[in-house]
Design a protein around this nucleic acid. Structure first.
Lengths: 338, 338
DNA sequence: AAAAGTTACGTAAACGATTACGTAACGAGA
DNA sequence: TCTCGTTACGTAATCGTTTACGTAACTTTT
């Protein structure tokens, strides 16, 4: 079954391609009668518009690009899904580009993006320069949880990482922890730094010397586990852990559990992200919930808006609130276990 | 910065667009000298070919579609990633379509696929009819772990689900379980049915009445948990659980643990998939490893092959081996704990 | 009834590439 | 010298749309 074109439809009906095109696009300029005649034949032959030709002519592809580090990671996948949900409902298709911190791949992706002509771009936790390059080309773009601070250069949507770090730490302190370890991603990236700041802020507020117990480790469960294992073996004295992401927290839980340390009685643990698995760890993990759905949706909305009014929007940054999920790895406040 | 076209490049050089196009495509028919002159100007102006125009003219888009149920699911995401890896290295782009068992969305996806003209399609665990529809259109397609059996209609790549189910069950039996419960996804889909068959086969081999203890439940951690909880409360006597996927197994682990049942001493548990988290559950989960990378890669290879020789390939189905991952939720064989 | 406006189309150029075909220039073979 | 083959291009059609512009027919206004 070969595809039928507008021209063939027009021939069948003895009208011009212009007329067919006009009814296809609801452009007006035809009678009710021809409209129904055209529509009849269109679906009789199961006409599908050729997106390439249309895109070539109109300079719009009805597709938007989503660039992210790794869609195998539930957190990114969820953001992507909600972006997709939003745009599909508006008649767009999304193209996902996985760039695993691979500069070469990012180059290729850039060329491809450019050559295929996406109408807009959402850049999740990507590289500053690449994003700005694209921005220069005047294709609308919004960033989500950007690696570097570029609030003043691009519209960005991000979680309230500062508040999250503060909330997590405050929770531990209020529930009796006095010597808290921050297990943070070693990379010098904006969201993690913000969480760190929140951590310091809470400690100061409670009159503690901040940053005494900060451990920088790779973004990696195994390393979190072995790191905490070492702390235990060296007899370091601590009674709380704030991990800058659930993955790290889960590594910590495992090390603690293996060493027979009671959670939360001896050591409380709190994570960040609220990945699905945090409900199924042992014990279940208290954590700061990131609203991935809102992150994706808001980014998509912002992008659509800046696509509609073609000139560059005044840069706006939008902060999505985070919330505390209390589970078994921290004490109950009213239980007064401390 | 506006995009430059072949025509403009040609004007600058005082050659024809044909010549520029020829050097762009290494088509021959130009002197070494003009070749270098053209290439110089091309990258001086940072020329990017317009994929739409090229696609319109050549009828090839250098893009392939990947249809899957939910990329939020690590299992599907991993398959998609390895497909992407393969095709990106060949100069293709992939378009991912998430169709959450939503027939309407699948329709939309179909139209889009058709209209954008992908060169090939990989269909992961999708709906039979849709896949066949596309196949009818003569666009090359291969299926991965297909929901229904259609080995005779489409090329398909799948895990050795039968062997996996057999292996899992045999492992439990060899390590002393005598009353094994199968916790299976309630949907009547091919891979799950195969695992079930493997289960039955192992039981028969060991002289047990098969299928005495089969529980059909939704694909959902919570339901697995509550289901096992009920079994325990009703005093059902069992000493082993084979879950048709890790997600279900993890729910089971939680219920058992909460009830104070010792794993693996009182009840052994084995899952299927080997998701990342199965290494971090408590206890760590023994499981059947699906080689998602091989699934994706092989599917991609097969597709590329059938794209290259344009006529329909003889239908081939390829089975990817599975392997046993022994962890804490089953007994050690040499430990002779039974 | 002439002028003006409206409706419902058709014509043809354009979007940016590829490619079949034509052709000028050149060298070789007879 | 004539012919033939080869090389290195150029010309123009083509892919499937959209859309500015033209126009015939009809309606309304004056």
């Amino acid at each position: 079954m070969v595809k039928i074109t507008i021209k063939e439809i027009a021939n069948i009906l003895n009208v011009s391609t212009a007329t067919v095109s006009r009814v296809l696009n609801n452009a007006g300029g035809y009678s009710e009668e021809t409209k129904t005649r055209v529509l009849d034949v269109l679906d009789q032959y199961n006409y599908q518009t050729n997106a390439l030709a249309k895109g070539l002519r109109t300079n719009r592809t009805n597709s938007i690009g989503v660039v992210l580090p790794d869609m195998t990671n539930e957190y990114f996948a969820k953001i992507a899904i909600s972006i997709e949900e939003f745009f599909v409902s508006k008649g767009y298709t999304i193209n996902i580009y996985n760039v695993n911190e691979d500069a070469n791949k990012e180059k290729l992706m850039m060329r491809d993006l450019d050559s295929r002509g996406v109408d807009g771009l959402i850049y999740v936790s990507g590289n500053l320069n690449t994003a700005l390059n694209i921005y220069e080309k005047n294709i609308p773009i919004v960033a989500v949880n950007q690696l570097q601070s570029l609030d003043d250069q691009l519209p960005v949507v991000e979680s309230d990482n500062l508040m999250g770090g503060y909330l997590a730490t405050k929770t531990l302190l209020e529930r009796g922890s006095k010597r808290i370890i921050l297990l943070r991603d070693e990379r010098d990236i904006q969201p993690i730094n913000q969480r760190h700041h929140g951590f310091s802020k809470a400690l100061q507020e409670f009159g503690y010397d901040s940053d005494l117990f900060v451990h920088h480790i790779p973004f990696n469960v195994e390393r979190a586990e072995s790191n905490v294992q070492q702390l235990i073996e060296r007899g370091i004295n601590f009674d709380g852990i704030f991990a800058s992401s659930d993955l790290l927290a889960i590594g910590a839980l495992k090390a603690l559990h293996r060493s027979g340390i009671q959670i939360p009685d001896e050591v409380q643990v709190i994570g960040f992200d609220n990945i699905t698995f945090s409900q199924y760890s042992y014990p279940t993990l208290s954590t700061i919930h990131q609203d991935t759905r809102a992150l994706g949706m808001k980014a998509a909305e912002l992008l659509l808006k800046s696509m509609e009014c073609r000139q560059k929007k005044p840069i706006s940054t939008m902060v999505i609130p985070v919330t505390l999920m209390e589970r078994e790895s921290t004490r109950c406040l009213d239980g007064k276990q401390f």
